[in-house]
């Protein structure tokens, strides 16, 4: 019995929320352009499916490209900063400044440079996803026990040996934890850029629909974004579990930090 509740509990909650929502809309006769009922949203979702698919694909594409760049850049800079105290001191203020700037405010500049379309979305996704990866990789490298470093150095290990044998493996859990945060932030970045300056993508679709008061379609877009977010998060969580299972058993606790949009 308990097992069944564990398994179906979440779905039960979702289903009952939707039913409650539907009933409320019916009873209080809420107009569609204020709050559409779930049935209306689904109807819109089905009706516009081919169009939504095109825009969803665009959003997924910019999210993933931005994410890949964020992973590469974040790993590179994270390792550099974790490796060298000098680089850490030099880059730290810049990184903090970079992270403090609201990324929405940068989108207009990106539009000036790259025009409306795909590049601003990719770059915004990159900017949001980049920081947590840098911070976590650097933090992971910093967790190497000084005694272990002594052991290795007394064997004649170079700094590179220590990085490869100990530093990178021990920061792997931090890195994979950061991926979960980063991929979701990349999606946020893409959608933000699309709502400001784009002619394609779920963000654009929602903005466009809302200007026509097609609120069911706005909600349909929202649901598609949510589902995409959950799926890519779960993929990253799965990769994390597969690669760094050892970390969840040991004493190492994994922290992750989220940046702001």
């Amino acid at each position: 019995m308990n097992k069944h509740i564990n398994r179906f509990g979440p779905w039960l909650i979702v289903a009952s929320t939707l039913i409650f929502w539907e009933i409320c809309v019916l009873i209080f006769a809420i107009p569609k352009f204020v709050l559409p009922a779930p049935s209306a949203i689904i109807e819109s979702l089905v009706k516009w499916a081919p169009v939504i698919a095109i825009h969803a694909w665009q959003t997924l594409f910019t999210t993933l490209i931005g994410f890949v760049f964020a992973v590469l850049g974040g790993l590179g800079i994270g390792i550099a900063v974790g490796w060298s105290t000098l680089l850490y001191r030099a880059l730290y203020p810049l990184l903090i400044a970079f992270n403090s700037v609201p990324k929405v405010a940068i989108v207009p500049i990106l539009v000036i440079w790259f025009g409306i379309g795909t590049p601003p979305a990719i770059i915004t996704a990159f900017m949001l996803a980049f920081f947590p990866i840098v911070v976590n990789v650097a933090a992971g490298l910093a967790t190497v026990e000084p005694e272990l470093e002594d052991v290795l150095r007394s064997l004649g290990a170079s700094k590179k040996d220590i990085l490869l044998k100990v530093g990178l493996p021990s920061s792997a859990p931090y890195f994979f934890a950061a991926l979960k945060v980063a991929i979701t932030l990349a999606l946020v970045g893409s959608v933000i850029a699309e709502t400001i300056a784009a002619n394609k993508g779920i963000g654009y679709l929602m903005l466009n629909a809302s200007s026509r008061f097609d609120v069911p379609l706005v909600f349909a877009g929202l649901i598609v974004v949510a589902i995409m977010g959950i799926v890519i998060y779960e993929i990253c969580a799965y990769i994390e579990r597969r690669t760094t299972g050892w970390a969840t058993r040991g004493a190492t606790s994994v922290v992750s930090s989220a940046g702001g949009g």
Binding site: E147, S154, P169, S170, T244, A247, G250
Partner: peptide, 18 residues
């Protein structure tokens, strides 16, 4: 410089968990 011929062990076993 670091010796290169020494073995060391500490109070903390410092094994690699992976």
């Amino acid at each position: 410089g670091p010796l290169k011929i020494a073995g060391m062990a500490f109070q903390n076993p410092t094994l690699l968990p992976w």
